[in-house]
Simulated assay, not measured.
Amino acid sequence: MDNNDKASSNQIKDAVDILPEGIRKIVLGRLNEIVGYEPRIGIMGKTGSGKSSLCNAIFKGEECPVSDVGACTREVKEVRIRFGKRSIYLVDIPGVGESAERDSEYENLYSGLMPKLDLILWVIKGDDRVLAPDERFYKDVLIPAGGKSKTLFVLNQVDKIEPFREWDEQNSCPSPRQMKNIVEKKEYISQYLDFPEHPIIAVSANEGYNVTHLVEEMVRALPKYAQSAVTAQVKEEYKTKKVIEEAKDGFGDTVERVIDEIIDMAPISKPVATLAKAAKKIVVEGIKKVWDFFFG
């Protein structure tokens, strides 16, 4: 253990030592679970929508294929991405753009898979004009499985939206006329899908356009307990102050919620519980100070 590790460990110990002795070990154990959590992000979209290029644009870790999980006649492909001490899983989910007859084949798959996913990135190609299969699958399969609140739609390859010859290559951004069409396309998709819970984000993964905004919205859409581990895997150029603050606050909120649960369930007296509640804020702030050690 180097000096930084020792200093961080001591800071965590000092923070937790404020709590009553009866719950310190439990809090430390749960803290290890929070820090070690490995989020799962589902990736959806038709062939050619740029799912792989989008993931490569966002994440910096090394990919390691984990498994091909048989699902009827289809497969769910899972890849583990690891950078430093943290890992996340990307889950390539099948189904979009296939025939309506196959939807029933996916109903059981999605109902079982959805509780395991923290977020779904649904990628739509910028110049795709046939959205009926996306709408059908979203409304008939994903929403009934409980996926509406977990789904973030991404309009990718917007550099191909007309007039594509006007794309500003020097600044890697749309021309004014392209931007007008991009805004109209986002509004159209939003209405077509009955206004998804999260905003539709327009990007060009290959050009690096608007990926920063996507990462910010992605972290915001994640459950608080998953935000920090995902942030740890994001490329440095997209790890904005807003992203880090969101993740740190989510981490602190998660730790605070867990401490509350432990206090409420632990076999301790009411005066001891009151003392622990009073010390909780100090503990959380102390643990948040070593966020960079865990996830930076």
Rank of each mutant, 00 (worst) to 15 (best):
N181H: 13
N181W: 11
N181C: 07
I182T: 04
K185P: 01
S190I: 00
Y192Q: 01
F195Y: 14
P196M: 02
P196R: 04
E197V: 11
H198W: 06
P199A: 07
I200W: 02
I201W: 02
V203C: 09
S204H: 01
A205N: 13
N206L: 15
Y209K: 01
N210W: 08
N210A: 13
V211Q: 10
V211G: 10
L214M: 12
V215F: 04
E216R: 07
E217I: 00
E217R: 11
R220C: 13
L222G: 05
K224I: 14
Q227W: 03
Q227E: 15
S228V: 00
S228W: 01
S228F: 00
A229P: 00
A229Q: 08
V230E: 04
V230I: 13
A232L: 07
Q233I: 00
E237I: 11
E237L: 09
Y238G: 02
Y238E: 05
Y238L: 09
Y238W: 15
K239W: 14
K239A: 08
K239H: 13
K239R: 14
K241E: 11
K241Y: 10
E245D: 12
E245N: 10
E246Q: 12
K248I: 05
G250F: 06
F251S: 08
G252P: 00
T254E: 12
E256I: 01
E261A: 13
E261L: 12
I262N: 05
I263Q: 01
I263F: 01
I263M: 02
M265N: 08
P267T: 04
I268D: 07
I268G: 13
S269E: 14
P271C: 15
P271K: 06
L275R: 06
A278T: 08
A279P: 06
A279G: 10
K280N: 09
K281I: 06
K281R: 15
K281M: 10
V283P: 10
V283K: 05
V284T: 11
E285A: 15
I287H: 14
